[in-house]
Amino acid sequence: MTTDAIRAAGAEQAAAHRRKKLIKYALIHLGIIAFVCVCVYPLLRIFSVSLRPGDKLVSTDLALIPDGATFRSYWSLLTSTHFLRWLWNSLVITVATSFIGVSLASTAAYAFSRFSFGGKKAGLILLLSTQMIPAGMLILPLFLMIMKLGLMNTYLGMIIAYSVSSLPFSIWILKGYYDTIPRSLEEAALVDGTSQIGAFYRVILPLSTPALSIAFLFNFTTAWNEYLVARVVLFSSKQYTWTLGLFELQGQFITQWGMFAAGSMLVTLPVLAVFLYSSKWLISGLTLGSVKG
């Protein structure tokens, strides 16, 4: 072969390689686009319902922005109902739940991860097994407990119920993450002069932000979307969370679908914001480079 022929063969090979890569990328992206469509479609439908004049849930119109699109549903939702109050209730309960839930879980998980004590294994399994009980079964006991505590129809009752029920999941997530952090980091901190708790705050917590934000998101979304417990604990319209509030719009004879859809759109905003904000903490590989290996 002449050098030219060799060069040509090389170029051919490179081109084939590039084509292969291109096809791979195309396939991956096709898959992603399909998923996005499936996820976004319902949202778009709700959006279009919320803009329709009149309370029509079904229509022959398939356009995203319907004829005579209007924000009137939004306006009447905000002015003629307690919607803002409901949002506020939900927000207070959810944020408090998330912070309390994550702080309790982060410390409990630390104990499970780092110390050996009697009943550690049993405790972990017990925590896991609570997750197997259907939520509906817990309604009655929760109702009784909150009533006995005199916390019916209060924020505090809701916060306790919510943060406690997310604990097992959060503890497991965090324990699993702590287990991957080398112990020698804490030991170095101890030798450097921190207490055990100091090592936890200065070394373990900063390194656990990915797991902490997952636990936070989990707490936030479950509390934000919860309906059953709220139905049982809250009974005055002013204390309602938005889940209860929106269902109040569903009258016996007519349902105000426009307002319902508008409400649904508005309640996604806080969750969206929290997700966007926390995504930057979800980076993995924080402990890279700390120890040999």
């Binding site: 080398p182 170095a188 030798v191 450097d192």
Partner: peptide
């Protein structure tokens, strides 16, 4: 923390953050 000892660990144990 009270022993006033400094230790260089076999696996370094640098604080990654």
């Amino acid at each position: 923390s009270k022993r006033q000892i400094a230790m260089v660990f076999q696996d370094y144990a640098l604080y990654p953050h």
